[in-house]
Design a binder for these strands. Structure first.
Ligand code: MN
Ligand code: MN
Ligand code: ZN
Ligand code: ZN
Lengths: 140, 140
DNA sequence: TCTGGGATTGCGAACGATTTTCAGTATGAT
DNA sequence: ATCATACTGAAAATCGTTCGCAATCCCAGA
């Protein structure tokens, strides 16, 4: 009954309200990258007395607490996903909007090397690929 | 007297107005990544009768004409640079805001390979690195 | 060189995402 | 159960950007 995110909130000493419980549940159950409106839509289905302002506030709270991560996919709004141990990036199908996750240790170390050569230590980075499906005959 | 961008606009058959001439000059002379407000500030210095709305419109026009490129550095506003033949990315110094450009053919081909393996053809991509200067003793 | 009409401009209003304000409400330590 | 305090809903404010509209400008054609 207690979602993973709810547990994390308690751990951080945050006051556990009904709306935070619901939003935590929604985010724990999500396996996609919902924006704030979508989180609100899903939350309202569980408890209609949740305002969009509270969703905005809670998303920021959880982001600051490093419990969720903001994903910027280029459309104007912020999307979110549960923070996981394994770092990854996104390939966005520009025809369908489908989001494919991928990770590449080689790419990460190449990026580290580039920063070091420029005299910098990485504190954050962002990488997204936008693409369309390959034609049948060019599949690897 | 005729800036590089002005020439490009004429080539594309765009009507050459006073404000477009000034904005083209500002962008041709810029060697950084100004946002719209900054372009407006510089344009007004040359000719005070240029409105911010016209700058917004002209930036979009030039972007659509592929004469300039939009750069999204994560702060809320759009930044721009002259479109060049050579593709590159940005490393942002989070302490000073300084922007360092870099290019990496290896990184580009690795990115192509990843997309192909996922069954996709790349139509666009974005990569930014945020970092802080290395300490003296960890310089390569 | 002069002219007509479509393209362009300046202004302010409208916009969409997000934040803030504020008065009322709920939480959790006591 | 009480109470201080943190949290909430609703609406207003903010920020970057776009739009509507009447006035103005550019330039192909005369
Ligand atoms: Mn993801
Ligand atoms: Mn650049
Ligand atoms: Zn990465
Ligand atoms: Zn690239």
């Amino acid at each position: 009954m207690t979602s993973r995110l709810e547990a994390l909130c308690l751990e951080k000493g945050l006051k556990m309200t009904g709306q935070r419980r619901v939003i935590s549940q929604v985010l724990s159950e999500a396996d996609d990258h919902p924006d704030v409106e979508e989180v609100h839509r899903r939350a309202v289905r569980i408890d209609p007395r949740i305002s969009i302002a509270t969703v905005y506030r809670t998303m920021r709270l959880l982001e600051d607490a490093q419990v969720i991560e903001r994903v910027d996919l280029g459309d104007g709004r912020a999307r979110y996903e549960e923070a996981t141990a394994d770092h990854h990036h996104h390939l966005i199908d520009t025809r369908t909007g489908r989001i494919i996750e991928f990770a590449s240790p080689e790419l990460e170390s190449m990026k580290e090397r580039i920063a070091r050569e420029l005299g910098y230590k990485i504190v954050g980075h962002r990488l997204e690929i936008y693409g369309v499906p390959l034609d049948e005959d060019e599949r690897p």
